[in-house]
């Protein structure tokens, strides 16, 4: 089970990753290079028996789902759903995948995401893991950063109040530190990712009982 009772509290667990369970309602910002282990780490953070909702802006829904299955996840289903704003012209993947025309259309992404969330909830899943890969195109397509704050606040708030788990990736090298710092404000903790000669390493800021020093992630190598 991905979800267990630990001292009476419900938590989200992460199999095969050097991370301790986190409380429901937690939002994590994952920062790392787009081409590094960031993407696989994010997909692995979504593994479990909960519902899974992915907002994908960098790669198509088809590619995202294929990669998710490769790390051990399930294909599109009542439980696994995708909002695709990558602008890759995927064929219709059915009701479990929604398409939004552009990563700049934050209104459309927000409504499609809420619609998919309500659908899994209506099917009886009361815990859901949400992955956003990545926030970078959403920022690049919006000259004004304020709507992105509104979008991030809206999504993280839904996750927090619905006892979900949020995992949102961003490429720190694509944005100024001051923008990244302001965006990070909406998240409970930050998982930093780096690629080294010995493999992918992570460290965590802002959450107790998590690795603060660079820690190898054997599952990603």
């Amino acid at each position: 089970m991905s979800e267990v009772s630990l001292q009476g509290d419900t938590v989200y667990e992460f199999e095969r990753l050097p991370l301790e369970p986190v409380a429901t309602g937690t939002n994590l910002l994952v920062t790392g290079p787009t081409l590094g282990g960031t993407r696989e780490l994010l997909l692995r953070l979504l593994l479990g028996d909960d519902a899974v909702l992915v907002i994908t802006a960098d790669t198509s829904a088809r590619e995202t789902l294929a990669d998710y299955e490769r790390v051990g996840g399930e294909g599109p289903s009542e439980r696994v759903r995708v909002v695709d704003c990558s602008q890759d012209d995927d064929a219709d993947l059915g009701e479990f995948v929604s398409a939004v025309g552009s990563p700049g259309d934050l209104t459309g992404i927000g409504i499609e995401y809420a619609g998919q969330y309500e659908s899994v909830y209506a099917r009886g899943y009361d815990t859901a893991r949400t992955g956003i890969y990545t926030l970078t195109p959403l920022l690049v397509y919006n000259d004004d950063v304020r709507p992105v704050f509104r979008f991030v606040n809206t999504v993280t708030s839904r996750i927090r109040t619905a006892d979900g788990l949020g995992v949102c990736a961003i490429d720190p090298d694509a944005h100024e530190d001051r923008v990244l710092g302001s965006i990070a404000q909406s998240f409970d903790g930050r998982v930093e990712v780096r690629d080294t000669d010995d493999g992918v390493e992570i460290r965590v800021r802002g959450l107790p009982d998590q690795p603060r020093e660079w820690t190898a992630v054997p599952a990603l190598r």
């Binding site: 809420a114 209506a122 979008f151």
Partner: peptide
């Protein structure tokens, strides 16, 4: 449904609850 809604401004971010889900008003 989301696909039936015309697109608003790209920054008109809202929450959304479809009336079609069970116990929609509780949601």
């Amino acid at each position: 449904s989301p696909s039936e809604l015309p697109r608003g401004g790209r920054d008109q971010i809202v929450e959304y609850v479809p009336q079609s889900v069970p116990d929609a008003r509780d949601r």
